[in-house]
Simulated scan of single mutants.
Amino acid sequence: MANPAPSSPSARRELSRHYKDNPPPAGVFAIRNLDDHRVYVNGSMNVDGAMNRARFELTMRGHRNKALQADWLRLGAERFSFEIVDTVKKREEPGFDAAAELEGLLAMWRQELGSWAPAGYNEREGVSA
């Protein structure tokens, strides 16, 4: 059962403040094909939410990566694994840019895990999936 909505304005303010002070983790995740070891790598400022969204899209036959979607339908959900491979480590430095840090991690992990097509599922900019 879902938690009931806070009843007082002060309780709502406290929940809002808590969320702003504790944002979800940003990071990079991988979806691995356990049969041929192809991998799809993506990142988000909310890595848990993005991973859940990807799983939902695959289940609902609506994932934007057509090659990954086709293999998911052909092999079944049990032949894929989902994992967080890295998260953005927050720093208290002036000018720290979490989004830029995430982009760097994403590029590094796509290279490291060999996620570029045809060996992986990721397509380079300007190339359709």
Results as ranks from 00 to 15, higher is better:
E78T: 08
M108N: 14
A50Y: 11
L58I: 01
L73D: 15
W116E: 13
M1P: 00
A100K: 14
R55S: 01
G120H: 07
F80D: 07
F56L: 06
N22H: 14
D36C: 11
R64N: 01
S115I: 00
D71S: 09
W72V: 01
L58W: 12
A129D: 03
S10K: 12
A54R: 14
G120A: 00
G95E: 03
L73K: 02
A99V: 05
D35A: 07
N42P: 01
S128I: 04
V41W: 04
N42T: 14
P9M: 11
D97E: 05
R79I: 00
K89Q: 06
K66L: 00
E93F: 14
K66S: 00
S7N: 04
W116D: 12
R38E: 09
H37W: 06
A117F: 06
N65D: 10
S81K: 15
E103R: 15
T59Y: 06
I84G: 02
E57V: 10
A99F: 05
E57C: 09
F56K: 13
E103N: 07
V28G: 11
G76M: 03
M60W: 02
A129I: 01
Y40D: 01
G114K: 00
S81F: 12
S8N: 09
E103H: 15
N22W: 04
V127M: 11
E112C: 08
M51I: 06
L75S: 02
R55F: 11
P118M: 02
R91N: 05
V41S: 05
Q111Y: 02
